[in-house]
Amino acid sequence: MSGELPTLRWGIVGTGLISSWFVHDLALDREDAKARHIIQAIGSSSVDKGKAFVEKHLPGQSPTIYGSYEGIYADANVDIVYIGTPHAFHKQNCLDAINAGKHVLCEKSFALNAKEAQTVFDAAKAKGVFVMEAMWTRFFPLTRTIQSLLHKEKAIGSIHRIFCDFAMDQNIASLGPESRLKNPALGAGTLLDTGVYCVTWGLLGSDAEIGEKAQKPEIIAKQTLVDGVDIATSAVLLYPNGRQAILTSSSIVKTKSVFCTIQGTEGYIDIEGYTSTPVSFTVYSSKVGSSKKYESKGPGMGFYWEADAVALDIAAGKTQSEIMPWAETIRVLGILDEIRRQGGARFPQDETA
């Protein structure tokens, strides 16, 4: 049966935490897999670091290990490059992979700003390769079910407010100035790291449409900055119909288990787990006076849902995802740009994008 599934040979750029989660999930044996994934090659800053990554996260496997990212781009056996480096390197990593004719799945936030993202998409269009931002949360079956209940079935009536928070105590004060969490040149701050998920839930909860077809909300934002880096961000998306999405992120405190609440005229939905990784949600209906809980199913963390979707899109000859198209990445980054404009957080690259 597996031979009938589309197959992707992955080259992994970056050996940090998120790359370890990604390869672990792709290596899982799944009964409902929609594609076959092969970790073909690992690119790291040194061969030794790459070997340690494989020994720890891919036991029993033997991908090609490169002491540079260039080896990944030049490897004829790599179909698609997964980019798990810090935000500030995404643009160049994407451009290098695209120039080599590789498909690309690049972690969120896709770039530091919308201008950088547009540069990447222009290059992808010229080369005819598939490129997608790895906003994995959108591909969870649980997320897809929430969208259907909200916008198709109108399970809680007309949506009035969305509250979403992503906060982690990252002990920022203890980190050195070159940490990706403290260095503005690396895209430091809560907004691109965690706030992007809150913006995502705010958009998904507010509107059935995405990308260019979506409604355009007014944005009001404030940030708390330390050495130019936001340690807390609060933003409100105000829609023409009066709907509001209240979105917050912080690196000082921790989000409660219910990270998102969506309120409507006939009830509300509480979503639990992590803001990036929903594990369950409960629909409370005031109309019928009942509640129903939905829970996530599947092994691992859930990165394979986006990977399967990418494999199916590439097999179908597509260069964009319908769930996370280029226009949606540009829209989200445009909102993040405006939040930073109002809040004061700046990256050196903003001046040259």
Rank of each mutant, 00 (worst) to 15 (best):
F53G: 12
T233G: 07
P63F: 08
K292V: 12
N99T: 15
W305G: 03
I38F: 13
Q92M: 12
G176D: 08
L192T: 10
C94S: 07
Y73A: 05
T233D: 07
D29I: 08
G67P: 13
T261L: 05
T248C: 09
L204R: 11
L237T: 05
L333A: 11
A345K: 07
D48S: 14
E295L: 12
A345E: 15
A114W: 04
I210A: 02
G176P: 06
L95K: 07
K51Y: 00
A134Q: 04
P325W: 02
L58H: 14
E107Q: 02
I65Q: 00
P325G: 05
I252C: 07
I162S: 00
A167H: 06
V13N: 03
H151A: 06
G317N: 06
T137R: 15
Q320N: 05
W10Y: 13
E306P: 08
S19T: 09
D207Y: 06
K56G: 02
H57E: 07
T319E: 01
Q61G: 04
N183S: 12
T329V: 10
S234Q: 11
V120H: 08
S62C: 00
V13E: 08
D207L: 07
A111C: 15
K216N: 13
C106D: 14
H160N: 10
R138G: 04
S20F: 02
G84W: 13
G60T: 12
A97F: 13
H24M: 10
K318C: 00
F139Y: 15
T145V: 05
N241Y: 04
S280H: 04
W136T: 13
P325S: 00
E212Q: 11
S20K: 03
L95E: 13
P141I: 09
W21A: 00
L28C: 12
E295D: 14
E116S: 03
W136A: 10
L191A: 08
Y284N: 00
S276R: 08
A327V: 01
A155H: 09
Y294K: 11
D350R: 03
L112R: 06
K152W: 01
V236H: 04
K127V: 02
E209A: 09
D122A: 13
A111N: 13
T145Y: 05
Q263G: 02
E266Q: 15
K91M: 10
G84M: 10
G187Y: 02
L175P: 14
P86C: 00
V129N: 13
Y82R: 11
P177W: 06
V120S: 02
A185F: 03
E116P: 09
T119S: 12
P184Q: 10
A316G: 03
L95R: 06
S179Q: 12
E272Q: 14
Q320F: 02
T200V: 07
L181Y: 15
